[in-house]
Design a protein around this nucleic acid. Structure first.
Ligand SMILES: [Zn+2]
Length: 302
DNA sequence: CACATTTCCTGGTTGC
DNA sequence: TGCAACCAGGAAATGT
């Protein structure tokens, strides 16, 4: 499930291959993922130069001459660069230990729903098994409206403590649910929400309005910290994520709680538990993240 | 308005 | 071995 660190990993990998290039032709698979008629998409983007590649939350944004060409990866979206000077791998392999799917550079298959060929050679391939991904093409003037409902963007001036604290209000939903809301902090998904709550020592089911100021401040620090580590390790591959080269990330080996139900907490040894919040699998350490919050010493629950 | 639940989709895993 | 049931989840749509 590509979240901010995975999208940023793809962005960094793709940038040197495509920025400055010109879009030549496109080939389309299942039109479901397109928020614009495919033939209109081709008509509009053909011949435009890619001026830049940026990111906002979980959205990857190609700046063209007259448009923004925008991708959202949903759950299983992959955007890879197919280099004509490199050979394709045979197909799909299975990691002998982790069982992870390893794709590397690959030819289009039944799940490849878009190929964007570049004039200088090579192509970007968008592959999405579950088809929760989306492809948009918007006019340059529409960009503010397009992103208006997205929340704070980490590492920008918008991401400051004052703005962060104002987002809490007197709400009574679980803090985990708030973290999944893209109008709070953009780019946080199920994995990094759990990791951030662990880093901040907050139980995921705690009601937002019950959090003390010090806990909110801990979360403010924890969110960029876990996202940064995710990027540093090339993203988290649980099943489908691959970077622009088609290779897996390594952050799955660094996860503290997500997907670790029944395993020992790396910090205290207690067994990690799982619960469902907002219909999402949620993992936490009952000792490091007590329901009543941590005391000032950071050890015993209140 | 605030919050909860349902829906979309496929393939891997589980259990009989 | 086969096959049905179940699970994963981002975010829009729908329900309370
Ligand atoms: Zn612990």
């Amino acid at each position: 499930m590509p979240e901010l660190p995975e999208v940023e990993t793809v962005r960094r990998g793709l940038e040197p291959h495509v920025v400055g290039g010109f879009i030549d032709d496109i080939e389309v698979g299942d039109p479901k993922i397109f928020q614009i008629e495919p033939h209109l998409l081709l008509e509009q983007i053909r011949g435009q130069q890619i001026l830049g590649l940026t990111r906002r939350g979980k959205y990857l944004i190609f700046e063209l001459e007259r448009h923004y060409f925008i991708f959202h990866f949903g759950m299983t979206g992959q955007l890879t660069f197919r280099d004509p000077n490199r050979s394709d791998s045979e197909g799909f392999k299975r990691h002998p230990v982790t069982g992870l799917q390893r794709t590397r550079q690959h030819a289009p298959d039944r799940h490849t729903h878009l190929q964007v060929h570049l004039r200088q050679g090579g192509a970007m391939l968008f592959r999405d098994i579950r088809k929760f991904g989306k492809v948009f093409l918007i006019e340059k003037g529409e960009v503010a409206v397009f992103f208006e409902r997205l929340g704070l963007e980490p590492w920008t001036p918008d991401y400051n403590l004052k703005a962060f604290l104002q987002k809490f209000g007197n709400r009574k939903l679980a803090i985990k649910s708030l973290l999944l809301d893209q109008s709070f902090v953009a780019g946080v998904g199920n994995i990094y929400a759990d990791e951030a709550l662990f880093a901040a020592g907050i139980h995921p089911a705690r009601k937002v309005r019950s959090l003390r100021k010090t806990e909110k401040e801990s979360l403010f620090e924890a969110i960029p910290k876990v996202l940064e580590e995710g990027i540093e390790y090339g993203g988290t591959t649980l099943r489908d994520f691959v970077n622009s080269d088609g290779n897996t990330g390594h952050h799955q080996e660094r996860l503290q709680v997500y997907g670790r139900k029944g395993e020992s907490c790396h910090r205290c040894g207690t067994l990690i538990q799982r619960m469902v919040i907002s219909q999402r699998s949620t993992c936490f350490c009952p000792d490091c993240q007590p329901r009543g919050g941590r005391s000032r010493t950071g050890k015993a629950p209140i």
